[in-house]
Simulated assay, not measured.
Amino acid sequence: MSGVGHHNSHRGLIQEPGPVDRRAPVDAIIVPSGRPEFALVEAGRLAALLDATLLVLSSGYSRARAVPDRLARLSTLQVVAVDFPAAGVRDMPVLETSTVLGRSHLQRKADTSAKRNLGLALARMSGWRNVVFLDDDIVVPDAADLERAVALLDVHDGVGLRLGGFPDNSVVCHANRETGELQDTFVGGGALAVPADRIDSFFPEIYNEDWFFLLGDTALRPVSQVGHALQRSYDPFSDPDRARGEEFGDVLAEGIFARLDQHLPIAAETGYWSDFLRARLGLIERIAKRIDPATPKGVAMLRALDAAKGRLRSIRPVDCVRYIEAWQNDRKTWRDFIGDLAPNVGLDAAVGAFDLSSFTSAPRGRRRSKPERTAPRPALAATVPLSPSPVRRSVPVVR
């Protein structure tokens, strides 16, 4: 691949593991849930089969109080459901990536990233080693695939399941595929195993936050894929606001990963982003020319692409540079925060330290035995912050 522009696949960045015949225990499945409680049945089934704690972080249509009752038939399941406050969680760090865009319409307001970050903090304080982030629209046919994924965390910072079913792409990338182009997917947070005991990444408040989570300071962390999961289908073109909300994050992630494909470092120069923004506009216009405007689906696709193009035209190269610099600052902020947390205090104490409301159910049946743990994993290459940290809020310490 060469030149500046969209790459239809970043598959070459993923380390292929080969046959995986080893399994390791899953300590917890963490679900940032916004759908009604019935959407958690699949995550509950998996957690019960794997003897893992199910941690549900609820907002929107998901009510923490109702989660244990909804999953009560899973008698061996230990579930902890936490109400995620609309105003955010006390004592979580204030991240520059959530403020650098100010009141700009480029700012994407969603709490998925914040819930995942809380999950990382609770996991560290609970003493969990291997956790899986699972979205509430994901199905995993073989629960053992999650054990195979965490078995690879000794030498990887993230292991995703290969997503089948409905592709996990942005609106623009869905349109690219729908109009006949090859369009791949990448490792995503919808089904992602992470080493909670040592990972020092965070999820910024932006579309493609999982891609940013998998980055080091200048390159991609060691990442792999194994097993299979299915994402439930939806219509990506039904609401043009989806395309608007995704565009800035899609531009940044695709622009960064296009450089990584070419073994180049993450770019924070306006010249590169000026070229990439022009290439992105050309991509959207080429896709639009391939769409039949005489069909209802074509009309919806064109409306969505017009929305993406309108948002794209408001993105300046300096916006990209400022966001990347803020993200680099936040990496240091998050590293300090996660390192200062009181370790191994247990989930109840961790939830209490953040002054959160939780609802639990304890298993009633006999717990199944877990696979034997592998030997302690070595620390991977340390990352070095590129910029100083902004001022952050206090960190909860349980005594």
Rank of each mutant, 00 (worst) to 15 (best):
R322N: 10
D261L: 15
V318P: 01
G119Y: 08
C320K: 06
A86T: 14
R90K: 06
R65M: 00
T179I: 07
Q231M: 15
L40H: 02
H10D: 11
V194F: 14
I30R: 03
R366S: 09
T374E: 11
A43R: 04
V100E: 00
F38L: 11
R232Q: 14
A39W: 14
V94Y: 06
V321Q: 00
R177P: 06
D137Y: 08
Y207A: 11
R198I: 09
V345E: 01
L220D: 08
L252E: 07
P385L: 07
K297S: 10
A64G: 10
V139A: 07
V150H: 00
S389R: 00
D184I: 03
L215P: 00
P396G: 09
H10F: 15
R90V: 15
A121N: 06
I30K: 00
I287M: 12
V131D: 05
R70G: 09
G190E: 12
C173T: 13
A379H: 05
T295G: 02
D91S: 11
G346M: 03
D69M: 13
D136E: 11
V4A: 05
G190Y: 10
M301P: 01
G249L: 02
A308S: 03
G44Q: 03
A28D: 09
R393G: 02
L214V: 09
G5F: 03
N329R: 10
P68H: 11
P371G: 00
N344T: 07
R22I: 10
F359D: 01
R335N: 12
G352W: 02
A300N: 14
M92V: 04
V159E: 00
A43M: 02
E285S: 09
R73T: 15
E96T: 00
L163W: 01
Q15I: 13
R124K: 04
L277T: 14
P85K: 03
I315F: 05
F213M: 08
V131T: 05
P93K: 02
R73E: 15
Y234A: 09
G158P: 04
L95C: 11
D235A: 08
N8C: 12
R162H: 07
K332E: 01
A353P: 11
K370W: 15
V194E: 03
P396K: 01
